[in-house]
Structures are given as C-alpha cells and as structure tokens.
Design a protein around this nucleic acid. Structure first.
Lengths: 137, 137
DNA sequence: TTGCGTGCAAAGGTTTTGCATGGCA
DNA sequence: TGCCATGCAAAACCTTTGCACGCAA
C-alpha cells in the first residue's frame, strides 16, 4: 500500500524470525509475547501489538478474526503463497473450539461461484466456517 | 438441534419484540440495552448477553463480527428465510453492512464437500460469508 | 540531531462470571 | 416445588494509549 519508511529494530527482527520459524501456524499476540519472553528476548506487549499492525499493513503477516472474543490470530505469509495465490479457509469447531485451516482448490471455487453468480467478493480473511469437527461429531 | 428455549420470560419477549421491530438492521448488545432502558423496560446487561447467545443458538438472530475490537452485531433473521428444507446462507458486506440471503443449490455442495473431504459438518446457521457486495466493489 | 520505536503502566471497552434473588412451569 | 433466568457488581479479557526514554538513520 504505502511504502512507509521503517526502522530496522531488534524487536522487529525478533518478531520476523519468530514468524518465519512457525509458518502455517496461527499465533496470537499473547503467544508471541510468551514465546519471546521464554527465550530471554522479552518485548513489551505494546511493541508487539504495534509491530503486528505494521506487519499486517505491509502484507508480511495476515490477521484473522476467528471469533469476536478470542484473540486475533496472525500468520506468516510465505513468499510462495503470493505466487500461487492460494487461499486459506478456516473451519472452527463449535464444540471443542479447534481451528482447522484448509488449502483446498475446490473451496476456491466458492469464491468464483459467489463472484460469478451472486456478485459477491468473498473475503477469506474474515470468513470462518462453523460446524463440528470429526471427533466432535 | 437442541431444544434450547426453556422458559418464556418477559425479558426474552422484550428482546424478540425489539428485534422484530428493526429487521434488516444490525444492532449491538449496547444498543439493545440502551433502547430498552429508554423505553422504561430496562434489562440487566448480563441477561441481554445471555439471551442474545441463546437466540443465536436457536437461529432466531444472527451474530456478526465485523471487527475484532468493535462490539458484535446482531440481526433478526426473518421467518421467510426459514423456508422448509432449504438451507440458507448469509453474506455480509463488510463495507455497507448489507445482509444477503442465498438459497443456492450449488452452495449446498459446500456442505457435502466439507463433509466428504474434510470430515467437517458445516453449520449454516452460524456460518457467515464476509466480503463485498456488488455496489461496494 | 531528528523523530520514530520502545516499554511500562494504566486506561479503554466489551463480554463473562459469581452469587443471591426472583419467576416460570 | 424444582430449576432456570435474572440482576448487580466485579472480574476477565484483549487491545490501545500516554508519556518519557532510547536508538536507528
């Protein structure tokens, strides 16, 4: 969006390192704080929140709002997912609360279908499928 | 699903009346409290939250999470969207807030697909597709 | 040197919970 | 009568903000 000038700080590097070390994983702001603290590299929580916001703006990580009351989830956007344009969908079990994320081509068709037939541009970042997982059924 | 409504209380009726009086509108828990209070029928806020949760479970109202930090929105689901045997999906425009009801066989395939390929039992009552409507695109 | 980034603590706002009381069936 | 629902206040929770200090460029 806007190429805002950024300082390269130690805290920012630590965050990036952490995210790169856990690809395909949803982490919360609290997770980040706890992890860094337990590794002797504690960062102030306000810094974590502020950096997360920046990284989202820059498109380096993605923010997911799974549920209004649980904390927001962040996930590293691997460089090759830009190329493939792969969409990630999320399923949340209403019973056990488990979060499942799907990379499925067939589900991508939902987007095309909604766009073509219903003129609706689906936002995979916000949309979550609720239901029951295998164990809870 | 499960016979959720147990008692018919005055507070529950007030809430239902209110929602029926403002169809096609999204209101927050705070709006409900304020409205009822200004009409001489104040209800404890915990009751409001607890009833809202029940009504959502029963499919009478829908809950929308537009943004993680702003309060959740609720909206009355009109009875005609409860056409028998038909599954109703909901799309919510993130920009103008418009709610779109979809009765589409193709979308029913999503359920089958999720069940067959991902062992996930989709709950159409709870699930909302977020995105942008035609006008807002 | 400039001014953004950081960290601490405190505030902010929404939602949940504990517990005694009240009301439906 | 037996439970469930209610209401109040307080707690819990995530996130943001104010302000002084530190650090990158």
């Amino acid at each position: 969006m806007d190429p805002r000038p950024k300082y390269k700080t130690k805290q920012r590097e630590l965050l990036l390192e952490y995210f790169e070390s856990v690809p395909e994983t949803h982490v919360t702001a609290g997770d980040v704080c706890k992890y860094l603290k337990s590794h002797g590299a504690g960062i102030g929580q306000s810094t974590v929140y502020r950096q997360l916001e920046s990284l989202v703006d820059e498109g380096i990580i993605k923010k997911y709002i799974i549920d209004g009351n649980s904390p927001a989830c962040f996930e590293y956007v691997t460089p090759d997912s830009h190329v493939e344009g792969e969409v990630c969908f999320h399923c949340k079990c209403e019973k056990c609360g488990k979060l499942i994320h799907l990379h499925c081509d067939e589900l991508n068709e939902i987007q095309s279908h909604l766009m073509a037939e219903h003129s609706f541009k689906l936002d995979p970042l916000r949309t979550v499928f609720y239901g029951l997982c295998e164990q809870c059924m």
